[in-house]
Design a protein around this nucleic acid. Structure first.
Lengths: 248, 248
DNA sequence: TAGTGGTCTAGACCACTTA
DNA sequence: AAGTGGTCTAGACCACTAG
């Protein structure tokens, strides 16, 4: 009984016991008390040390497992996971921030009904020549043009999709969750491209500059594609970042 | 009491009750039984319908919340979340697959001790002129060169880092979790670039072709950078993909 | 006040690993 | 056989929301 862990659970805190214990254990891992590959104390030991019930400890271990911090092996123990480059996940936080109130303005460049080309028809699972609405928008951060957005939406005369989609709020809704409530899922891909003349002019950049392209296809609850489009941003203005491991 | 849900929990299944209920509810959401914005049945109702205890239902709701499928509001209910573009996460699965056994071969192009330039020194938090090891590797899938890797590792004469890092297994370890057990965390960024002459030659591509660049810095448990490097792959050979919503 | 989700208990039984 | 994690029960009390 040399050095008990100093940290204890504060039952009077607004932070729930399970959250406190998650924080304590993550901190110990980040501090190197438990190194990758080490075995954590058994669940029974954790119950005793921190004076919580088995269910609470189980919940803590589940959370750490979901977070990718540890791996639990039945009959052996719970172990700290080593770094795995492959577990990194990139999110669109930076992009989402652009669409928060006051952070950005959206300018509608063009929107008109057109006929689907072979490529558009394939992406939207419609026939060549079917009517679609082609929309182009430019998203500014302050005075700076940050993003160029192109989108093909299936033209449905029974619903006033056109006006709703053209609105600035429709774009914001996609990012903050207000608008697209008829959509079941979306597929996204990131790839690299270079700015062509039109894009360079709109983004106040230059032809041939490396740029990221975020393509999206959204589907409704009948698994029918509804829209296909993509954002383009010059590479020096926006990046995707991720952290793996224990950034505490 | 018109139409009870047909799906029930099979207590004899190897699939735990909580997992079955998660699957059932996700399926109902994907099928449009519950639409974005709808309220799910209350926890008490779910207990009754599926004949499980409150704790099991709570666990299910927690899982669905963690998955971003629903949002629980105290005192009001649990609601199906609408699509949010900003919640999309891109992972490196495709990249990781390359490094699985038999999927790829790694060719060491060059590895030598050098002195840190201003840029390298800044990235690795060392002084200009300090010794580093510069490594270049080429990763093949079958006969095709897929990835070019450049990396600067801090030279530590007390440890045989050089040999270990140069090994093919070191790279594979980064992706599958065997090797980097002295590393605390890593920061990653994705950006766009175009191939320069040397890169194009090695990757059997052409100058100016758009390419993705995955940069990484790894830190040890003293928060000291250990290595800085990046992968380059031509954009038509590798993409990052994500799906949001209910892809069931 | 009634209903909702949020947390937590103090066990139980099981499957698995290791010795 | 002993120890580990995996699941589950049948409640309890609390905080919050709504009518």
């Amino acid at each position: 009984m040399a050095d008990e862990p100093i940290a204890t659970i504060d039952r009077n805190s607004y932070e729930p016991a399970y959250a406190q214990l998650v924080r304590i254990l993550r901190g110990q891992i980040a501090a190197g008390v438990f190194r990758p590959g080490d075995r954590l104390p058994s669940e029974a030991q954790l119950c005793e040390r921190y004076d919580v019930s088995p269910m609470t400890v189980r919940r803590v271990v589940n959370i750490l497992t979901d977070q990718g911090v540890v791996i639990a092996e039945q009959g052996r123990g719970t172990f700290v996971k080593p770094l795995e480059l492959g577990t990194a996940t990139f999110d669109l936080d930076r992009l989402q921030q652009l669409f928060r109130e006051g952070q950005s303005t959206v300018k509608l460049l063009k929107a008109h009904i057109t006929s689907a080309t072979e490529r558009t028809a394939r992406k939207l699972a419609i026939k060549v020549g079917d009517r679609t609405v082609f929309i182009r928008r430019l998203i500014f951060q302050g005075e700076k043009p940050m993003l160029l957005h192109r989108e093909h939406v299936i033209y449905d005369p029974t619903r006033p999709l056109i006006e709703a989609e053209m609105e600035v709020t429709a774009l914001r809704g996609l990012f903050s969750g207000g608008g697209g409530s008829d959509l079941k899922r979306g597929d996204l891909t990131i790839d690299a491209t270079v700015l062509i003349e039109e894009e360079a002019a709109l983004l106040h950049s230059e032809v041939g500059v490396p740029a990221l392209r975020l393509e999206h296809i959204f589907y409704d609850f009948d698994d029918q594609p509804v829209s296909w489009g993509w954002f383009i941003c010059s590479g020096d203005r926006l990046r995707f970042t991720a952290t793996i491991g224990f950034p505490d």
